[in-house]
Design a protein around this nucleic acid. Structure first.
Lengths: 216, 216, 216, 216
DNA sequence: ACACTCGGGACACCCCGTTACT
DNA sequence: AGTAACGGGGTGTCCCGAGTGT
């Protein structure tokens, strides 16, 4: 149906505007009137595209999740090594979290989700699975110690990153997020890399940070 | 005055009931009618004790913060060593986060606070300061390496713990929080303790966990 | 509680205005804004007194039922004979149905009730019971044939009256209701009164009509 | 045009589905989305065939009226005697009122019509005219007393039947409608049939009931 | 031309957080 | 400490035309 061209556009517009408002005010404080005004779309159209405020929020979460997870796909296609991939991911995600409204909104809504719906778990689980993969291939090339519990590590990195990003938001509006992510890796790497690689890997976080973000 | 005694009691009752409702439904979805019903107090009385819904939520946050921070005071008075103190704190707090309604509500509201008020930063800063203190005295007794940036470490532990607790809530309703906190320390200690102490400190998280919580 | 004086008054005011609007527009077409405007009461006050639009409608039905059923109580206290009582009731009720807004509204809502609530049955059952009583005492004094099934008769009179009133409303706005009720009795009495009383009872409907209503 | 064939079919499908929904929920509580879902037709198509929700309801009323009135036409063609015709009609209509969705919906809407449109009067008037005809031919063959006011009788039977059916719906969902219609005639016949015919006509309602409906 | 997607406003109901008067 | 009243939106969703394709 070619006619959906307009519809797709409208839907995307609503989603973007909704993300902006959600990101600024949170789910509870956002009214559909706000979204309607921000998107320049009437509530009728809004209702046509999304069944409810909750559905709209979930759609934003979903969009964010897709947008973020696609960062990972790119890495795999570029055939990056495991440890580099993990670090690249974290910094690219940090950049999204600073600059991409949809991602910012999605993350915020993910955390507030228990206010309006069942808690959202898939994103956390997906990220954990992705990092498990990175770790495994890092072990294969000797960047990460054998015998480590990759499940446990992944199950720690994701929450740690979540918390780092959350507190960075609360304290500085995420202005310091690159520093904080860099430190995350510096405190975590000693538990991961084998002693003999430490010399060459201890500086990796900073190198990758600059590779991804620059001096910023 | 005897009259004030009852007033204090009523106020505390409201606060407890409000915490229970906030914890279950979140700020936005909680109505004063809910609180009124849960506490068995009329809305009039409710407004006599708290100026507004927001004030009520902030009072819950405050109560939680006091309740949690007082855990730290007890440690100082018991003159625990720095590293032990840090670990004890984390597990005791984990226990509160599992079992204490006011604390659970307070944490939830702290994170939702940006929905209805300026973001709450003091708790994070207070915790960071406390952990800096623990780390400094840990360095003094040789449990933590010299030359480490205690500010940076504290600035990582607090977010990491925050994230761990948050994701544990989302995925398991905090049922696995003790495991997650134990792992947090296991992945973090290698970056903190000097090599020569590793043998005796690597098992510390598990020991303290059992000391505080038992097999649970 | 003396303070409720104001509340009672307000409530009654709302009920009366609501009846007027319901009577004119029906349940579905009546908005709470209409009621609010008609009663000069804010929607907040309205919500304070009635939990919902449905509750308001049911309250109107209830008020009508009380108002109508109390006609019957008066008859009993006046110790009217059974047949006279039945006829008096029907004409007095007819008058209410023409002139009393609350009654008109209540009847209308009773019929529309299945649109918004479980069908209302009590009024019908109450009326049937009342008429059974009248018939029994009419039999006792010989105005109604023995051996008649009073339950069946009551179970016919009430629907018949209901229909007469309903169609009179649809066709003439109840302008002709007295004529119609008179005829109802004229077509029904032959099945009820014993042959030997026919001479003196055949004119009873008209006599009672004039007694209650006058020439109108 | 073949094209219209399908249009007619679609229209009929909508009408049937709409009747089902109206019958179940009433006019006010029925949304066009409901009808659209029930009929498997998009709302757009729905508006193509009917100008408005009200028009749709009126079309259902109309369909019901046609369907019911055609019962009468059949009788005339079968050349039934007047009194038999009247009784046959009433029982056949009762059967429709129990079993035919369109008829049930139409009747319900007829009564609710004043909620959304001018009161519907034609059906009542048509029925009254039909019954006047039956009565007149009944008088011609001596089944009904001469000198009776056929207009008045018809003007009573139709409302009485309406009420009987209405209350039967409210109290039993029309499960007892055949009993109630039978009784209607038993209480009415004494006023209609001449004394000398009473012996043979008093059992007529039951006989016709069984003829039309069976033991049911 | 028929059919339908898409979008448009308009309220309706609910009820919420809050104040005035006892 | 409490009853009563207050307005103000919030979400849902309804009924209905423009616009678009088949």
């Amino acid at each position: 149906m070619a006619r959906q061209a307009r519809a797709v556009e409208t839907r995307a517009g609503i989603l973007g505007s909704a993300a902006a408002v959600f990101q600024r005010k949170g789910y509870g404080a956002t009214s559909l009137a706000d979204v309607s005004a921000a998107s320049g779309v009437t509530k009728g159209a809004l209702y046509f595209h999304f069944d409810s405020k909750e559905a709209l929020a979930l759609a934003v979460i979903d969009a964010q999740h897709h947008r973020s997870i696609s960062l990972g796909r790119a890495l795999v296609e570029q055939d990056e090594s495991g440890l580099r991939a993990a670090l690249l991911m974290s910094f690219r995600l940090a950049r999204q979290l600073r600059d991409d409204t949809v991602v910012r909104a999605g993350i915020r809504l993910t955390m507030e989700a228990s206010s309006f719906s069942a808690p959202v778990r898939e994103p956390y689980l997906d990220w954990m699975a992705a990092f498990e993969g990175y770790l495994r291939s890092a072990i294969a090339v000797g960047d990460v110690r054998e015998g480590i519990d990759v499940g446990a590590v992944a199950h720690f990195i994701i929450p740690a990153f979540t918390g780092v990003q959350l507190v960075s938001e609360a304290l500085t509006g995420r202005a310091d997020i690159y520093d904080r992510v860099t430190e995350l890796w510096q405190f975590l790497l000693p538990a991961l890399v084998p002693g003999e690689r430490w010399a060459q890997l201890s500086g990796l976080p900073t190198r990758i940070r600059h590779e991804v973000i620059g001096a910023d």
